[in-house]
Amino acid sequence: MLVIKNLKANVEGKEILKGINLEVKAGEIHAIMGPNGSGKSTLANVLTGNENYEVTDGEVLFDGKNLLEMDPETRAREGMFLAFQYPIEIPGVSNATFLKTALNEIRKYKGLEEITPKEFLALIKEKASLLGMDDAMISRYVNVGFSGGEKKRNEILQMLMLEPKFVLLDETDSGLDIDALKIVANGVNIYKNPNTAFLVVTHYQRLLNYIVPDFVHVLYKGRIIKSGTKELALELEDKGYDWLIKEEEMEKV
């Protein structure tokens, strides 16, 4: 579904991604781990089209289409979705207005009719209840006055509503208590199917207990220095990154 070849990107003139190669097939869940500042969020932003990140080399194919040529809204309509590490507040715009606007843009792109207000309300209520979210959240302004955990849950609500093919979760587990973590993971597990794929950025094994990855990659200084199966995450939890980083430096020498 997603093929990343030798992807390099700069932020404010500094090279952050230094040649990423990764293939994610439909139905798979990949986890990306790595120390702070290694470039995980940068990768997520580059894939979703944040214009502050400048791609300098490489290629990304999304279901065969050249992803890097598309603007962020087109990527979203093609089925990319990023659950943000730091979701944005939009005062004056209700969750309902926001999601209805987004959903209809996506439907329009796919040649579908606009959703009726009634259908929309039923849909959002159903999805919100899956995540244990109060109906009142629907009419509240996007993320305004939401707790850290509620913001993350709201990201998952958006995912459930917009039904993307490819989902990036950027530290969606951070700031969640164990109950909220289960709810969020449950939302992901309900949603995942053979036609969707996930790239899960996290620092912690505990999320991966609930969202079980098929592959785990370690990003360090803008490169994937190790890939493995879910056991790699357990090993990292146990031993930290140092041993891997040492291996990497050794190889360089």
């Binding site: 089209g49 502050n52 979705f81 944005i88 939009i90 715009v93 926001f98 843009e105």
Partner: peptide, 29 residues
Amino acid sequence: DEVSEFYIRSRGVPKELAKSMLIRAFAND
């Protein structure tokens, strides 16, 4: 705010409409 604009667009909302939302957000208080 560019980050906010990106957030909105990343949901499929076109740039012009994202701008409208951010204007509304600015006027909100």
